[in-house]
Every structure is written in structure tokens, then in C-alpha cells.
């Protein structure tokens, strides 16, 4: 079982959320959410659509300007967001997109290195719409990493990709996180994605965190592992999907 959030020492935690409430036109989207994320910890947040996942991520990113809310929320200033769409500026080249807002030659050099890390060396001068969906999302990853974030927020980043590309992106993300060690909050509705990537999985339901599950499987994780299947069944039932005849893979 995961340690209770309050057991984490404040020095080692990246995110600290207490009693977070968010309301939208009389509807409570987030209700008394508590969460701590340790340095370098990979947390996946699962939930059905409308459960408040994106609202929570926006709150952490500081993007919820006109939303009513209360509660304690501490997140590092130095955070990056990866959106579901790659969100590249079509009128800027790939390298310009990666180094957006960075200054000087150091920024350029870091941008080139980040592009090489995501396997897009040599595509610096390309326009975003010359790249495939997976490549665009890799540019978006490079743009996030080049800022050396201590917290990476990802809002269903692979949701728009095909299944094969998605698996490759999982490997890439795992590899990048192992190297840069940011704390990660990955919002997703893909249970397998969450299990194969995360150290800890949360389930959000109707504005409440109803599950906090530490995943102690060795990495890289085998989808056919019976423990994997057991966790999947457990999470799916928390998400309201009963799986009586589900293949144990």
C-alpha cells in the first residue's frame, strides 16, 4: 500500500494538494482532493470522461483562470504541459517550436539536443504539418523536456495516436523520464497505459479520488503478467467496468 500522502516529507515532494475544490456553474467538479507527488514519481490519473481529470490538471498547471475554487495547491513554477494535441505553432519550424520563448544560443543548442533525444535529429527545419501525428507529439515532448521541468503534466498525450505509435511513445516516455527524473502526472483513460508506465495510479470519480494504488511490478512491464491482469481488473472495476469474462491475456 502506498504511504499516506502526509507521510511524505515536504522536502521531497513536488506537488502538494489539500482539500482542493473546483466548481463550474454550481456543479462541483473536484471535491476535497488531496494529493502529494514525490520528486521523480510517475503518477497516472485515471477516470471516466467528466470525472474531473482535466480540471485537476488545469488547476495544477495554473490554467483555470475563471474557475471558482478553494484549497491548498503547491506545484513547482517550473512545470511543463503536454496536451492531447501536439499544439505546435504551424507557422514556426520544428526547432522554433521546441525553443519557443527560450533565449539565445544556449536555448538553440538545448533544443537540438532535445530533438535528438526524441529521435527527430535532422528535422529541425521542417514545418509541423510535414510531420506525422506521432512525430508531432514527439516534438511536443522535446518542447517540454528542453525546459528541464521538475513536474511534467500530460493530458491524454497519446489519446489521438494509433495503437502501434502509442506503444512506441510509451517506451520513449519511460526512457525520457528515467533520464530526466521529473515528477509526472499522466492523465489518461487507458488503463493499460497507466499500468505500464506509472509508479502509482489514482482513480478520480465524480470529483473524488477513490483509488490510490502503488504499482510494484518490475519494468518494463509485461502486459501478459498475471499481476498486470489482476491490477487491470481491479482498476476497471473501480472505473465501473465489470469484467467477468475478461481474458487473462
Amino acid at each position: 500500500m502506498a504511504p499516506h500522502p502526509s507521510q511524505l516529507k515536504s522536502a521531497s515532494r513536488t506537488v502538494h494538494v489539500r482539500n482542493l475544490m473546483r466548481r463550474f456553474a454550481a456543479k462541483t467538479i473536484l471535491n476535497r482532493v488531496d494529493l502529494d507527488i514525490a520528486e521523480g514519481e510517475f503518477v497516472a490519473l485515471l477516470g471516466r470522461s467528466g470525472s474531473g481529470k482535466s480540471t485537476f490538471l488545469k488547476a495544477l498547471a495554473g490554467l483555470d483562470h475563471d474557475v471558482e475554487g478553494t484549497g491548498t495547491l503547491e506545484a513547482p513554477e517550473n512545470l511543463s504541459v503536454v496536451f492531447q494535441d501536439a499544439r505546435l505553432l504551424p507557422w514556426r519550424t520544428v526547432i522554433q517550436n521546441v525553443t519557443l520563448g527560450l533565449q539565445g544560443a544556449a536555448g538553440q543548442e538545448a533544443g537540438r539536443k532535445a530533438l535528438a533525444e526524441v529521435g527527430l535529429e535532422g528535422r529541425e527545419a521542417a514545418w509541423p504539418n510535414q510531420l506525422s501525428g506521432g512525430e508531432q507529439q514527439r516534438v511536443a515532448l522535446a518542447r517540454s523536456l528542453v525546459r528541464q521541468p521538475s513536474l511534467l503534466l500530460a493530458d491524454e498525450p497519446f489519446g489521438a495516436l494509433d495503437a502501434l505509435t502509442r506503444l512506441k511513445m510509451h517506451d520513449l516516455l519511460r526512457e525520457l523520464c528515467a533520464r530526466h527524473r521529473p515528477a509526472v502526472l499522466l492523465v489518461t483513460h487507458d488503463v493499460d497505459e497507466a499500468i505500464s508506465l506509472a509508479d502509482r495510479i489514482l482513480v478520480l470519480d465524480d470529483g473524488h479520488l477513490i483509488e490510490n494504488l502503488r504499482i510494484d511490478l518490475p519494468t518494463p512491464r509485461d502486459h501478459g503478467d498475471p499481476r498486470f491482469a489482476k491490477i487491470r481488473t481491479q482498476l476497471l472495476s473501480r472505473l465501473g467496468v465489470e469484467t467477468p469474462g475478461r481474458r487473462a491475456a
Binding site: A61, F83, D85, L89, W91, G101
Partner: peptide, 27 residues
């Protein structure tokens, strides 16, 4: 507005936002 959101998360300066996002986008 998604680009505005992006510029905010990248902590772009007002000047960068205008010259990198707004004006080229309006070209």
C-alpha cells in the same frame, strides 16, 4: 485559444507571445 494556453504554460513574455504567436497567426 489553445495557443494562448500553450503560451501561458511556456511562460512566454508578452512580447514573445505577440511576435511568435499572435502576429504570425494573423498574417
Amino acid at each position: 485559444s489553445r495557443y494562448v494556453e500553450l503560451a501561458e504554460t511556456l511562460r512566454m513574455s508578452q512580447k514573445d507571445f505577440i511576435f511568435q504567436v499572435v502576429l504570425p497567426g494573423a498574417l
